[in-house]
Computed example of a mutant assay.
Amino acid sequence: MAKNQPAPQDAVSARQAKIQQATKGTHRGGPNPLVIAGVIALVAIVAVVGFVVINNKNATKAASEGGSALPKGVSAMGQPFVRGTPKAGAPTLDIYEDFQCPGCGQFERILGSTVKEMATSGDVQVRYHVMTFLDDNFQGKNSSRAANAAFCAADDGKFGEMHDLIYANQPTQEGKGWTDEQLTTFAGQAGLTGAALDAWTTCYQKQDHNQYVVSMQDATSKDGVTSTPTVRLNGKDLTLTNMDAAAFKKAVLG
């Protein structure tokens, strides 16, 4: 557990080693590799990576930086971002994550396509609470930069694509982050071209949504979230241990 201070390098290295060991060999012949990965890697998420205490010591300073524009589709500061258009009466799935969190990256690799399917079909209201507490742990702005990049893409309806690309290209070394050039490349790969890419570039360079990003971190703290990834179904924590894609879908949809 990282308590309100930067994670020591040896702890980070040990954390990565455990994740790599847990997922080693899951693509060999035999049982379904997705099931094995779902059982082992998500145990690693909960037992090794997930439990970190949110640190907001730089929130006041961060709140004064960048712009205060709300991303398209968001009605107020602190509100989560809804992916897709949910059907009436659809269950609500809240996902609390930090783009730099290795456990969140594992969650996306194993269950991200299932979440995307649920959001696209509208069978589930998928709400992302994008957090940035790891910026404090690593004394940087990689989480907030990635979050701003995703929400700038949301202005053109490409949040999901940008979100998935950022995770698909998550650095193996926790805290390393992404360069501006990489995030710009992801924006293009997400489908932003021409004037839309120019608008994204301006938004990202000015950090137009930064105060919204800060407000989301503040809101998650008030929600009592102390670990990432945290997944809640209709307001109740969903246990990820021993859960593969099929079990996850059944737990959410019944």
Rank of each mutant, 00 (worst) to 15 (best):
D218A: 15
N148R: 01
P86V: 02
A11Q: 14
K57G: 05
T114K: 10
V82Y: 01
A11N: 06
V39G: 01
E174Q: 14
S75I: 02
G191M: 12
R109G: 08
E65R: 13
A146Q: 09
S221A: 13
R28I: 13
K236L: 03
A41L: 03
Q211S: 11
G112D: 12
G103W: 06
N148S: 12
S143D: 11
T23Y: 01
A149Q: 07
G177D: 04
P6F: 05
T132D: 11
D10W: 12
D156Q: 13
F99V: 08
Q79R: 08
P31Q: 12
G103L: 09
V124D: 01
A149D: 10
M243T: 14
R15H: 03
G50T: 05
K18I: 12
S143I: 05
I19K: 01
Q100T: 08
A44R: 01
C101D: 06
P8Q: 09
G224D: 04
Q211I: 07
D218G: 02
D180L: 07
G30A: 10
S143R: 06
K87N: 13
R232C: 01
G66R: 13
T120G: 02
V126Y: 00
D180G: 00
R145T: 07
D208K: 15
G140V: 02
D155C: 06
R232W: 00
S215M: 03
V53H: 10
R127W: 00
L183F: 04
A187H: 08
H209S: 04
N4G: 00
F159W: 03
T92C: 04
L253R: 07
T132R: 03
H129R: 09
Q173S: 08
L183W: 09
E174T: 13
V231K: 02
R232N: 11
P6A: 04
V115N: 03
C101F: 04
T132E: 14
D155E: 10
S68M: 06
P86R: 04
G194M: 08
V49W: 01
K176F: 06
A150E: 13
T241C: 00
D198M: 03
Q205D: 13
G194E: 05
N56V: 12
C203R: 14
V43W: 09
Q189G: 03
A246S: 14
T60G: 15
G29P: 00
R232T: 08
Q211C: 06
D218E: 14
Q207K: 14
D237K: 14
H129Q: 09
L93I: 09
C152N: 10
K206N: 12
T85R: 02
D136A: 13
A146W: 01
K158W: 06
A63V: 06
I40N: 11
G89F: 11
Q21G: 07
G157V: 04
R232S: 06
C203A: 12
S68L: 01
G78M: 01
T202Q: 15
